[in-house]
Design a protein around this nucleic acid. Sequence first.
DNA 1: CGACCATTTGATATGGATCAAGCGATGTGG
DNA 2: CCACATCGCTTGATCCATATCAAATGGTCG
Lengths: 225, 225
Amino acid sequence: MIVQNASHPIPTPGNIYGYITAPTEAPGSLETMGVPMTFKRNSEIYGEKEPSDYLYKVTTGAVRTYRILADGRRQIGAFYLPGDVFGLESRKTHVFSAETITDSKLVAIKRSTIVTLAARDSAVARELWNVTTCELERVQQHLVALIKSAEERVAGFLLEMAKRTPGTNQVQLPMSRQDIADYLGLTIETVSRTMTHLESTAAIALPSSRCVVLRNKVTLGRLNS
Amino acid sequence: MIVQNASHPIPTPGNIYGYITAPTEAPGSLETMGVPMTFKRNSEIYGEKEPSDYLYKVTTGAVRTYRILADGRRQIGAFYLPGDVFGLESRKTHVFSAETITDSKLVAIKRSTIVTLAARDSAVARELWNVTTCELERVQQHLVALIKSAEERVAGFLLEMAKRTPGTNQVQLPMSRQDIADYLGLTIETVSRTMTHLESTAAIALPSSRCVVLRNKVTLGRLNS
DNA sequence: CGACCATTTGATATGGATCAAGCGATGTGG
DNA sequence: CCACATCGCTTGATCCATATCAAATGGTCG
């Protein structure tokens, strides 16, 4: 919410910073033409209604996109972790706002640059379509999650987070309970109670509030339907 | 649910039916390379988990996409009306199933054909990205709707339907109350009660259950946040 | 140590679900 | 042409999962 870094280094088309460190295996070509940017935690990256001139790829840190309704309710659209691309969700102007959750490094890629490149290079065009469809699939899943019970939503969320931190059953949550609640369409109290309950049934362990160990994925998966 | 038309006319790459009648203004080039198909009402177009080999454009009629959870709950992902394109929501296999709501005519377009064409023609590639992003935007809106109150959801739904039948405040609903309920994450009873309530506050008129007249869009819009 | 913030826990309220009839339109067979 | 079954929708009564309100706990930082 609090903008700690309002002055974006505006990348220009002529910029030739190459961003080299390959984050994961994912979308290969895109980040090579982007500009690295650094944000403090809870910084606005873009606001709802702003023109969507850039796509972003997370290098380190974590990002949330969200929308605030007239009466203050907030819906979080997604959490983006290292390797994820965001800013695709709109054509002209953003439907959601984006903020960092923790101190983060991103790569910003000018939309027009990609569009131009995509017009020439069909591999880029295809990549772009691919990433967008991935995002669409993700939102569809999220949509389905919102009709489930509180326990199913939380279990699903934890499994989703675990899948994104492969190789371990221990999940470090960069986001607050309030963020999780607004992502799942629940209240902070319900999220907390549900976590406690999952712990009491030995489905998870909670060494600390931001660290969850999945002890019984089968149980969690069953809850997930 | 009941499959009345299980034998799809499988379109082949060699098919040279040109589909000429331009439905609306929207996505121009896509349907010209498709194959027209006719479905009775409540026919399955494709099932969840099936490979997503085709995109479809609605010519006449109406389509719903949906997902059934283990315990039978159904979430409707979207309603598609004449001019709309669907089947984009996945890369390899469908995440949702699709059914006609009423007798319908569709144009089926082979995915591989489009991909091939998109590789050659950047206008097609761009169109494809555009349609997908539109769909993404729509799902995001839907997501946000699901955290609202029952009355807001119903009001929002009616406004959305009205926007898709321009030039009039009278909306003909091709879908049942159950469909609307499953789209909005409510029960049929709640949808019905909410409609009745909106009628009693003169926000809408209900000449018949499938016909809604929006009498006060301002009130409805306010509810919509 | 004390202030602050995030989280948990407890008590109560409520919106929408569930269970249960009733009603009106449509269709079917006698 | 009418009795009656069927189906989609509405209306009513009650229940419950989650929200709301309130307070206690715990962790972090100056």
